[in-house]
Structures are given as structure tokens and as C-alpha cells.
Design a protein around this nucleic acid. Sequence first.
RNA 1: GCCGACGUAGCUCAGUGGUAGAGCAACGGUUUCGUAAACCGUAGGUCGCGGGUUCGAAUCCCAUCGUCGGCUCCA
Length: 650
Amino acid sequence: MSKVETEQKIILPDGSSRTFESGETASDLAKSISQGLFRKAVGCLINGEIRDLYTLLSDGDQVKILTAEDSQSLELLRHSTAHIMAQAVQRLFLGAKIAIGPTIEDGFYYDFDIPGHSLSLEDLALIEAEMKKIVAENQRLVRYSIPDVDRQLDDFRKQGEKFKAELLEEHRNDNPTLYLMQDKDSKVVWNDLCRGPHLPATGLVKAFKLLKVSGSYWRGDEKREQLQRIYATAWWKADDLEAYLKRLEEAERRDHRRLSKQLDLFSVHEEVGPGLIFWHPNLATVRATIEDFWRDVHRKRGYQFVFTPHIASEQLYEISGHLQSYGENMYSAMDIDGAPYRCKPMNCPGHIMIYKSKLRSYRDLPVRFAELGTVYRYERSGVLHGMLRVRGFTQDDSHIFCTPEQLESEITGFLDLVDLMMRTFGYTYKAYLATRPEKYLGSDEEWEFATGKLEAALKSRNLDYEIDPGGGVFYAPKIDIKLFDAIGREWQGPTVQVDLNLPKRFDVNYIGEDGQRHQAIMVHRAVLGSMERFCGGLIEHYAGAFPTWLAPTQVAVLPISDRHHEYARSIQEKLKEGGFRSRLDERAETINYRIREAQMEQIPYMLVVGDREVASNEVAVRHRRDESKKKEMGLESFLALLCAEVNEKT
RNA sequence: GCCGACGUAGCUCAGUGGUAGAGCAACGGUUUCGUAAACCGUAGGUCGCGGGUUCGAAUCCCAUCGUCGGCUCCA
């Protein structure tokens, strides 16, 4: 073999290249670049793929050395920390078997089968302590190709590692690898079936924390073994960990269930049943205000409002197919005069009934029916969550019936509406085009047509979107929109679906220009989703401090002492006349006390009135957050300011 | 539904086998105050519900309901 053949050219991120003898690793490359890089190196990207630092390089590879500075390296860190955790658990709990331990957003988890022991929060501290020992031991993580799969399977089975055995069996033809964890004498102290990649050694792990334990199922299948899962997080720097924990705290501070108690927003009752929400006056005010806005916006866009019954004969859901395909989420039948009736789980069949109540001409289309329609769906008890996951909720549901030619502009119009609504509430968003899933109804042509129109609408609005391949529902391609709230969390947002099923089942049609019947296109769409989820999300988005246009109480009028009551009443009277929601607090508490209470209730404006204001015929304005808005002014000026703020919805 | 934790006054929580407690809120009184908690007093709980162990249970056990953290898709 000539020397030339063993030489390899490696391309670096800046486009420059280096030449090596074969048998060099990414670590060697780092060393050749600089000592500093060599010391900081934790892994590498080879041709865009994240790999171990000790991966052998091949001719023509594009290589980037990863350090803690690179965001991708967090994946390495977390995955390796997962192995450290698994090793710690097996050290502490004899007989514990390991399942899988992937990285997830902001952390990782590992699933275990620990016969005879239930993990508790106290155990987490023990496991953390054991993990620190493993870090201190600075074990090396070494990739090891399994030479003899059957022998390894045998080993796993002897050790009782049946989950690993199952995985290996499945991957036997994918060049399966183990990661060996070796002590300083290169003795293998632990191993795990793993695709990698990993950090070179455990000593690099600095900041981690185990967060919670939970149940899970092997392979996510509830018919299989129940496992115990530990969730944890890991970061390169203690400061990053600290910041992450702060973020979790912030999320907890914003929790809508917690804020509900503080601000008197909603309740659920054992006597009534879980997942059924009672809206207290404060939150009902917010909702009613949103609904008024919603109606206004829809009216302006040519929607017509409808109302449909909350129960219907089973026949309806037989025709729609809900009974067959959605039956397990529907409440059981009630007997009405010998016929089975059901609570409505969806509004679409009802809207179709209205559409079909007369013959429709192409001249009538598009028809846009909108309803704040309350539906009831069975959700398993374990998944219920405050207002965000409930059993009875009101959807801002609409169904558009149109011709194929109108489809694209209907979707464009919807995207425009979404933009208006989301900007109003201060959410940023991102669109996903969900395409045909594996199991589907309808023809390929129909799917292609509908998906094409959805995509064309996204393009014509210049919207950034991602394709979610196979993410459509079995009867419809759709656009899902995800929202990002004030602290960057993602929420399920608006959605639009082109139904390829119901128009056929119900024979939804119109008379075309040609005098013939044509099947109508039916679009489902929701902007807010459900009032329950949306309002629950808004509480967290605003951390309970609703903007003035939504605030349950917009102004608190606070007279300093009894002799100012009369003046304060006249102020409140004028606020009322102006259509504002105000409260006069005449209690004999100190002014500080009443200000504090108004602050804690997140009332946007406080008007303090005392001798000075009575004399000058003004009000002393205090804003709940903005010190700069603190000043005295005439009531008319304040009303103007308030009016502008409400109209602008800021 | 499953795994785990939890359930004490309106709220937040203390009390782990021996007479149910605190702070805030509520109520009564005093205070009339200038931008985030005045003072004094009163009342409030079959300790989620049901069973069991015990001389004795908020406390230990069982069952049940609910809540919370997760487990699968989703409004």
C-alpha cells in the first residue's frame, strides 16, 4: 500500500483541510489544531452527524470538534449522564433492570424495572450522590462493537436484562454497539447497549439534577411491563442548571391552577366530577370579553353564527362515523323514549345538518358556520389537568363549506384570522403542515389536492412552516399552529383541516354552475381551540396579569378616608358610564392595605383620591406595574387613556 | 386506566398513637390613613369519605373518592 493511499484529507468547518495518516481520530484532529481545543473537546460532528470524540476519521470527512460551547454537545452530556444515572441505580438497587434512557428537551430520563422497590424522592438524593461518585471516578465511556450478538444476548439474559436483550435482538443487523464504562485501570465496571454517541469520560459531567419519578410502560405500551422512570436534567455549567431550575420555578409561579386560587378564577368540584370547569365571575369576564372579540372578528369575515343541541340521537354519530372511530371518547348512551342519545363530542355533524337543511347553490358558497360549541369527551382520569385537559369544553369551532376553487382562499383567510388573533394575545407561532398518515380514508388524488391547497395557502401568506410527515388525521390533511408564550413555552394552537370523509358520509353537496350536484369541500377550523384550554393558557401567558381590555377589574377606586367617599363614588359612576369595570373600595382599611390588595389582584389601574384630588378635581393614577404611569390627572384624561388602551388591546 | 406522591379551618401550612394548632382571610370593635400588610378581640375543623387495628387514631392498616407528577394521541 503506498503512502498516498493511507493519507486522508479532513475538511474543517472553515473550509480548510488537513491531511492525516489513517487511524486518526477526531481527538487527534483536535490536538493537531490546538491544545486548547483538544482539552475542551467532548465530541464531534462528522458530516453533520454527532459522534464520539474517538471516532476514526475517513478520507473526505467534514469534521467539527464539539466543545461545551456548542449547543449540540448538550445532547452528548445528557445522554452520558443518563448512563451514569443508570449505573448509579444499578449500584444502589440490586436486581434493577435497565430499559431505555433517551435525551429529551432540557434533559433526559431513564426507565427501570426495580422489583420490590418503588422509587421515592428520597431515593433521588441517594442516586444523585452515587452519580457524583461515578463522575469523580472519571470512568471512560468506550464504544464497543458487539462481535457476537448471540453471545451478548446470552449475557444479557443471564443478567436478567431482558429489555436490553429485546432491543439487541431487534438491532442485531444494525452493527449494535455497547458502551463500556471503564475505571482508571481500564476495567469495565458497567456497560449498556447503546447507539451513542457519548462523552469520552464521566469527569466532564458537572451540573445535573434528578427531578421526578414517574411510571411508564416498556415501549410506551400499557399492555407491557410497567417501569419506573426518573426524569433529570444536565448542563455544562452550574449557572445553566440554576437558570433552568429558575425557569421551572417561573412556570410553577404561573401555573393557572395556583393563580386561580389567588385571583378567584375557576374551580372544579368533587360532587360534580373531575374535568368539569366552573368559571367564576373574574374568569367568566375574561372569557366573555374574548368571546365578544371573537364574534366581532368572525362577523367581519363573513362567518354566520349557529347554535346546535348538546345531545343527539346515536343515528347522527353513526352517519358521521364518530361512533365507530371516536366511540371510546364519547359518553355512553342515554335512553330517551327508547332511543339511544349521546352527548355531542364534536360540532361538525350539527353544522352539516344546518347546511343540508336546504339545497345549496354554488352561488351560496362559501358558507361559514361558526359556533362556540360545547362538547363532552371522555378523557382518562389520569390525564385531566386543570383547565388544560378537561371533559367538557367549548370549542371555537367553525366549518366552511366551499367549492374546490375556493379552498385555497378560504385557508388563506383563516391564516390571516389566526395572525390577527394571535398577535392580539401576544403569542408568536409556527405552522406545521401535517400530511397523509399511513392509515387514511379517501383517494390519493384527494389528499394531494387538499394538501396542495394547504401548502399553497401557507406559501401565499409567506408563512414559515415545517412539514409534519404523516401527521395528518386519518380523514384530513391539516395545518397545525403552535404558539409560543411569554416564557417561550409551546402550546397547541389553531388548526385547520380539510375533511375528506364527512362530505361523503353525509352527502354534503351543492348545485354547480352546470346544474349538477357536486360534493362540497368541508373545512374544520379552530383558532382558540377550546375556551378552557385557551383561557388556562392565557392565565399562564400573562402570569395572571391580564391586559386592561381583558382584566376582570380594570380600575380600583381608592378613597383615602371617609370624607372622600362621595367624590370617589362620582368617579366610579363615570367609569361605569364609560363602560369600564371598576371597583370602589370604601373599606376602613389603610390605604396601603387596599393598594396592596389591588396589586395582588393584578388590577391594572388604581385611582387614589384624597384631599388634593377633591380640591383639584383630579385622580391620582397608579399602574400595577408601570411606575412611569403614576401621576395626577383629570378624570377625562384618564378615561381617554383607558379607552385607548382597551381599544388597542394592549 | 396504570405507577408514585398527596388530601388537616376559605387559603398557605404545622401537628406521626394520648385534650386539633399558626399566619393570612372572615366577623365585631377601635383606627381615617397619601401609594404593597394599623391595633385589639371573636368565630371557624366529625383532620376527603367508609371500614379496621388499638384502652385511645389526623397519626398505623385496608378500601374508596379527589388532587398532583408522569405514562399514548389529541380539543
